[in-house]
Nucleic acid binder design. Structure first.
Length: 590
DNA sequence: GAACAACGCACC
DNA sequence: AAACGGTGCGTTGTTC
């Protein structure tokens, strides 16, 4: 039904007693931090959908207070298809749901570690359950010119915008009601699936579910606060990199006699006569590594061109995504990675170029674009060698652990025990965690496969417990089709050929769940203070700390370290800080 | 025109 | 038989 101001009170009275409700919003666009607004809120209970038509009258603004008081303030489980988006839109109406936030995509991930790609949309989740979504509004927009293509500075492509707010009620209402219906039904199905997944004598998923649900609120707050960029710096940097890019393009054309196109078609003729490496698909390879082995004046130029373009893309992306206050509200996606890690998007803040000391001499380095707001500084916390230490704690590799507890660096300890160089040990250690074989190790070290095998054998002899952990993990995945991670996360490997990935999933996923737990605890600690979490980068948290909150920093470090209860070797956390930017950091507390 | 595959490259 | 784990994004070229 369509709720009017006249029927508002009675509708709220009906909904108030429901322990679970699905909520969906219809909005003017997809960018809550760039002025888009909700024009409808749809609530579904067990058997009805209620369309609150905010567009109907400007009287809805005051009525929102009643919506908060008589609906959202009541503690419930709230199902959302895309919680952080809807929470941001609701917040624009002053609406804040109380109770438990159940994001469909987050729960879908917990139920199935194999899901990959664009399978977390409501459409896709519905389709997997034999339900169908309604394409009416999109089709209407296409037919009636309610689609805008927005060109983006520094980009070849355009962004498509659907104006759902122009769609007639007769089309949008049934569509919106169906979405809310699907959200409720899928939410219920997921909860039922978790009940079924609880069996005696196996690790419970419950702690994981509790943590991820809380985390949705933690991450929503983090995204809403966002992180500030220096817009003027970004504009200058975009121009600077753009100029270097254009100059390098001219240089290429001068030498090659044709314009640069970043494709094998364009590049291959320029390296005629040389033996070219091949990509996995058998095409000639022109990545930086391959180019460095080719001869000719354009090889270096191609790498330069790509470097300048890459840098320029970062700054253009920041300018595109920053809101009117120069704040970027990037997405931190709880559900996207199969191991349980976060991913980041729009823009991705987990792959910002890192600059070494020499590069930091330059004016324009990517991380310098990110600055603390007035009265704040950045405190950066990162787990030391998180994945490797977690593996050591799982395996209990005594010899290595003793050396490391004695203060030795992990790779040096490996090198000492195995009689190899630190550099070799470091490469081998990474590959161990990634499941790399002797062939890859040989390629990385520039030695023969036989020599690589010898190095591996030496490491295995020095720390047989690590090898045993990996073999066991892989064997279990092969036999049973899945393995349990720390905190009860289940990693499925239906294809036996993928079993070699199981140890990595357990380690990477374990680290993810440690930092996810720490994030909720840090968020709780910071509640009521002026400070806030702004970034999470796999083994690192960045806190935008108010100058008056410095005393909290040691406590945050402690929370992170204690999030994982170790058996053999604890996780330790390093601290950096900066009053300037993400680039210019100083070790330790301020 | 849009969707898709492939590549290249940034991070942990 | 043999295996380098997990991401997001921009571009190019092909295909429907």
């Amino acid at each position: 039904m369509i709720v009017t101001l006249q029927t508002l009170a009675s509708t709220l009275a009906t909904l108030r007693s429901s322990p679970r409700l699905a909520v969906d919003t219809e909005t003017t666009g997809l960018r809550p931090y760039h002025g888009d607004m909700p024009f409808a809120i749809i609530v579904a209970d067990w058997d009805h959908e209620y369309y609150f038509n905010l567009a109907e009258s400007c009287a809805w603004r005051p009525a929102a207070a009643q919506l908060q008081e008589d609906l959202f303030s009541h503690e419930k489980t709230w199902y959302f298809a895309n919680a952080k988006f809807d929470l941001a839109m609701l917040a624009k109406m002053g609406l804040v749901p109380r109770g438990t936030i159940h994001d469909l995509a987050v729960h879908e991930r917990l139920l199935d570690s194999t899901l990959f790609g664009q399978v977390f949309s409501l459409d896709a989740m519905a389709e997997r359950r034999g339900k169908k979504k309604d394409g009416g509004p999109k089709a209407w927009c296409e037919k009636n010119g309610a689609v805008t293509r927005v060109p983006v500075e520094g980009k070849q492509t355009t962004v498509k915008q659907y104006h759902f707010d122009r769609v007639p009620l007769g089309i949008i209402v049934p569509y919106a009601k169906l979405d809310a219906r699907l959200t409720f039904d899928i939410g219920r199905e997921q909860e039922a699936a978790f009940v079924l997944a609880e069996l005696p004598d196996i690790p419970s998923l419950a702690p994981l579910v509790v943590n991820e649900r809380q985390l949705t609120e933690t991450v929503y707050a983090m995204e809403a606060v966002g992180v500030k960029v220096d817009l003027a710096f970004c504009r200058r940097a975009a121009v600077h990199e753009g100029q270097r890019y254009a100059e390098a393009l001219r240089g290429f054309e001068l030498i090659a006699g044709k314009p640069f196109v970043n494709s094998a078609n364009c590049l291959a003729p320029l390296f005629a006569g040389q033996t070219l490496r091949l990509t996995p698909k058998g095409h000639p390879c022109f990545d930086a590594e391959a180019l460095s082995t080719y001869t000719g004046p354009v090889a270096k130029l191609v790498t330069d061109i790509r470097g300048f373009k890459g840098a320029s893309d970062y700054y253009h992306g920041f300018l595109y995504h920053a809101d009117a206050d120069g704040v970027i509200h990037a997405g931190f996606n709880q559900h996207q990675a199969r191991t349980g890690r976060f991913s980041s998007s729009a823009p991705n803040l987990q792959n910002l170029t890192k600059s070494d000391e020499e590069e930091l001499e330059d004016e324009f380095v990517v991380r310098r674009a990110f600055v603390p707001r007035p009265g704040y500084f950045f405190a950066m916390f990162d787990f030391h060698q998180m994945e490797y230490r977690l593996m050591l704690d799982y395996s209990g590799a005594r010899g290595l652990i003793d050396k490391i507890l004695g203060g030795l660096d992990i790779h040096q300890a490996t090198a000492d025990l195995a009689g190899i160089t630190r550099s070799q040990a470091k490469t081998a250690n990474f590959l161990t965690i990634y499941g790399g074989g002797d062939g890859v190790l040989a390629a990385k070290l520039g030695v023969t496969v036989g020599e690589a095998a010898r190095i591996r054998a030496a490491i295995k002899a020095a720390a047989p417990e690590n090898a045993a952990f990996i073999d066991e993990c892989e064997a279990v995945a092969r036999r049973r089709g899945f393995v349990y991670g720390w905190f009860g996360r289940r990693h499925y490997f239906p294809d036996q050929n993928d079993s070699y990935r199981a140890p990595n999933a357990v380690i990477q996923g374990g680290c993810a769940d440690v930092i996810k737990l720490a994030m909720n605890r840090v968020a709780r600690l910071l509640r009521g203070t002026m400070s806030r979490m702004v970034l999470t980068i796999h083994d690192e948290l960045v806190i935008e700390t108010h100058e008056g909150d410095s005393r909290l920093l040691a406590e945050i470090k402690g929370l992170m370290e204690e999030a994982y209860l170790h058996r053999h070797i604890p996780l330790t956390v390093g601290v950096d800080h900066s009053f300037k930017s993400l680039a210019d950091k100083t070790e330790g507390y301020p």
